[in-house]
Amino acid sequence: MKALLVFKRNNSFSKEVWSLDLENYFASFDPTSRSANFLPDKEIIDSTTGVDFISRIMENNKFDIIIFSDELIVKETASYFAGKYNFGLIAHSKEILFKEDNIIGIVPGWNNVNAEVTSNSNPELLILKSRSIVNLSLNNPCVIYLKEPTKVKLLSNEKIVENPLKSAKIIVGVGRGVERNVLPRVLEFARLIGAEVGCTRPVGDAGLLPPDKVIGDSGVDVSPDVYIALGISGAIQHIESVNANYTIAINSDAHARIFQKSNLSINQKIEEVIDKLLVLISIHLN
C-alpha cells in the first residue's frame, strides 16, 4: 500500500507509520524542508492552496492512504480536501493500526472514551498527532508550482510572543479538582517554587485561568522537567500534551488516571497538601 504523509514541520508521526510497512512518500507545506519527496514552491498558509498542492501530487501518483499531521494548516487542509473530493477523514487520531486490511485510527473523545474509526473511501484519510521534527534527509524532492489563492489574501503576519509554558522548567497544572477558593494558594505555591501555572481545558473554560494557560489538544504542548498535576483526572486530551521528565500528581481520587502517568503519586486532599507545603516552604525560606 502506498501512503502519502503530509506535514508542515512536525513529521514525528512517520515513526508510527513505519511500523505499518507501507510504501511512504512525504509532502511538506514548508518549501525549505529536507524531509519530503514533494515540496511547494512557496510556504502554504491557507487550506485552498494546501488542497491545490495535494491535488497536484495526486495527478501523477495514486495513494491508498493519506496521513496528515495535526498541525493547524495541515489539518485544516485535510478537512477541506476530504470535503472537496468526498473522502472519509478519520480525525484527530492518537494511534494508527492495521486490522483486517483496514487502516484504523484510535480517536480519543470525551471522558477517556476512544473510538476505533475506519474510512470507507479510497484513499483513506487520517489525521495523526505529530509533535516533533524528525530529519529524514530525502534528496531531489519534486517541487510543485502553485497558483496564488484568489479568495484568501494574507495581509500580515506577526511573530507570536512565546507562551512561557513552552519553556518552563516546572509547571503546576490545575485541574477541576482544585476548588476556586484554593486557587490563590496554588498560585502562591507556584510563585515560590518558580513554576509557571497551566490548566486543563475545563478550568480554562470556567474562566478560572486565562485561555493561554490551557495545556492540551486545544491549548499548548509542554515539555517541563517537572509537572505537578493538581486535581487533574488525566484526560487523554491533556496528558498527551505533557511531555515531562518527572510528574507529581496530587489527587483525592485514588482511581484518577493521572496516577498511571505520574512518578510521584499523592492520594490526598489538594488543599491539605498545598497548605502544608506553603508552611514548609515558608519555614525553609526564613
Binding site: N112, V113, T118, N120
Partner: peptide
C-alpha cells in the same frame, strides 16, 4: 457516512 466507528472503548 464515509467513515465508520468499529468499536468504542474506555481507557
Amino acid at each position: 457516512s464515509l467513515t465508520e466507528v468499529l468499536n468504542v472503548f474506555q481507557d
